[in-house]
């Protein structure tokens, strides 16, 4: 058996197979619910209800989607250039550290402190990815493994900072940073609405990344390097320089997730601000086919599954880990469906 490229895949194939992938994911959800002793239809209904059934639920989903848009964009930008950044988790945490340092130590006046925090976060996250990228371009070290390993190192570093130099003296012994002053907190997007400006910034970044990729030379180079690095080099493109710029942008975007969570949601840093947003960003980006505007939609979808599963779990008693299984299955079904929408399987 082998794969044969389809010259001009029809619309039915290009849309039908991804739809089938989503349907298969729903079937997995139903099966898991049954295994856990729940009624599949009730469980699915409760997930949808919990994600979007009330104003509170919808705001919760938007808030949960915010860091996922940032990490999803970070992964989408990097993967488009075939820079396998699996280190968004580390970049997120370093961005959060930079946010807290500037927010509590800089003494900048009110209107300046928030942009300074965001800028510091972007620099920290960009530098975090720069190391593995230089190891890749200079020495050929696989960035997948280095970014993965460094995630563990950065989490330990954050643990050390929170128990040592950055520990809140008023924290009753808890490993957490001091709280940001009021002027360093992101304001809400509307009076009385439990949604902070991190969400707005995420949307702006999505639009910015789309513009970058569709309308600029660098964006074109990033796509060319991703499509065929050898051809890009032959065409005279500075492939390594493009990868370095990609790394700075990708790491910076992931770091903004940390900035937004600290300055918008929590107000301080703890070692558990991210339940794996960096890794989930990979699913978000892949479901969006690496399209920056699609990332917003898929982040809302993924956040909805998490928020919905949490709420369902409290009612139906099906473990909320069902959400993680669904996302992993959705990822695998989707990449398989996309491949099969361009190739057919033939005998021989």
């Amino acid at each position: 058996m082998r794969l044969e490229a389809i010259e001009a895949p029809g619309l039915a194939r290009r849309l039908g197979l991804p739809a089938a992938a989503l349907a298969a994911t729903v079937l997995v959800a139903a099966g898991l619910a049954a295994i856990a002793g729940g009624n599949p239809l009730d469980v699915l209904g409760q997930i949808v209800q919990g994600a979007a059934g009330s104003k509170f639920a919808r705001l919760e989903t938007l808030n949960r989607a915010t860091p996922l848009i940032f990490t999803g964009l970070a992964v989408a930008v990097a993967f488009r250039a075939r820079l396998w950044n699996i280190g968004a988790e580390a970049q997120l945490y370093l961005g959060a550290v930079a946010t807290v340092v500037i927010g509590t130590q800089s003494g900048l006046p009110g209107p300046l402190v928030i942009p300074a925090m965001a800028a510091a976060a972007v620099v920290a996250g960009g530098l975090m990815l720069l190391g593995p990228t230089l190891l890749k371009t200079r020495l050929g070290v696989d960035e997948v493994v280095t970014t993965l390993l460094l995630n563990f190192v950065v989490l330990l570093l954050v643990g050390y900072l929170l128990e040592g130099p950055m520990k809140d003296p008023m924290g009753m012994g808890w490993p957490k940073s001091p709280s940001l002053p009021a002027e360093a907190r992101l304001p809400r997007m509307a009076e009385g609405l439990r949604l902070h400006w991190g969400f707005g910034l995420a949307l702006i970044c999505a639009a910015g990344v789309w513009l970058l990729q569709a309308r600029t030379t660098l964006g074109f180079e990033m796509r060319a390097v991703g499509a065929n690095a050898r051809a890009a080099r032959f065409a005279g493109m500075p492939v390594n320089a493009v990868l370095v710029k990609t790394a700075l942008i990708s790491g910076g975007l992931a770091a903004l997730a940390g900035f937004s969570e600290v300055a918008g949601m929590k107000g301080n840093l703890t070692a558990d601000i991210s339940p794996g947003y960096g890794y989930t960003g990979i699913v978000v980006a892949m479901l969006a086919l690496l399209n920056p505007l699609g990332v917003v939609v898929s982040a809302l979808f993924v956040a909805g599954i998490f928020v919905g599963a949490d709420s369902m779990s409290r009612q139906a008693g099906v473990p909320s880990y069902i959400a993680d299984i669904l996302l992993a299955s959705a990822l695998l079904f989707m990449v398989a469906a996309l491949k099969l929408s361009r190739f057919r399987i033939v005998r021989g």
Binding site: Y279, V283, D324, S329, L331, V335
Partner: peptide
């Protein structure tokens, strides 16, 4: 890369 990360998550 993608399939492997997906398998680890799954």
């Amino acid at each position: 890369h993608v399939a492997g990360i997906g398998i680890t998550m799954l």
